[in-house]
Amino acid sequence: MRKFKEFIVEKLILICGIASIFFVILIFLFLLKEGLAVFKTVSLFKFLLGKNWYPISEPPQLGILPLILGSLLVTLGAAIISIPIGVGCAVYIAEVAPTQTKEILKAGIELLAAIPSVVLGFIGMVTLVPLVKNVFHLPTGLTALSGSIMLAFMAMPTIVSIAEDALYSVPKSYKEGAFALGATRWQTIHRVMLPAASSGILAAVMLGVGRGIGETMAVMMITGNAAVIPHSILAPVRTLTATIAAEMGEAVVGSEHYFALFAIGIVLFVISFAVNVTADLFLHKRQ
């Protein structure tokens, strides 16, 4: 009887373990099945590098280059903003802040991570967008820059907490060694701690940026959603994610438009997957 119980529990756990992989495979297969169909009408090359996204004109033009560039521009802007602030914040929390400040800051960062992206988008829409419009004298504040700034807020918690972990896991003996040689606190941080934690910090950056690429709601609300190739960060853009979210509702099931949206999903999947694998490689290198 006891053996039977063991057997049941063991198999149940096995099923739970396999389930997640099974569902990932199912989702991926579905994505492939629906997405690849678009390549019957448009070549991969034309799809990725086509400059026009007019999915409902006749015949439809399904070039996603403006969307890819939109996503990259917003994400790159977010990375440029969030990396220095995030890493700086992690260094401050891990190395400089007194215990009490550290606790308050960490709680603050966690709270930032807990804000739903639609709320951030809404706040951005009523505060940041008019600000960008007035500061740069633009016809509209719905720009890639606005999206970048809001996205930076979303990437920051990930960057801070993982980079902070990386700094904590640097052996204490390195720090002692540097101080014993007469290094100041800043010299110790930039000559020993940061190089020693570099792979973990890189992983933090990759994961933070990865989160940015997949983000949908906030960028859809504040980037203006113009599917044209952006010529500056002050122009409205449309991201890959926003395109799917905005158009899936009106795409006719089985149409080329519908298949193209799934193909965009594949592109997003490939990008996120590549970013996560790279981050993982850095994390494992650390251990």
Partner: peptide, 24 residues
């Protein structure tokens, strides 16, 4: 100067370990 119980070279090259003091 201090030498510790467990050897604690920095995760840098041999050369950079030795010139660490000079550099700072």
């Amino acid at each position: 100067g201090m030498v510790f119980q467990r050897p604690n070279p920095f995760p840098l090259s041999v050369y950079e370990n030795i010139v660490f003091g000079e550099r700072i």
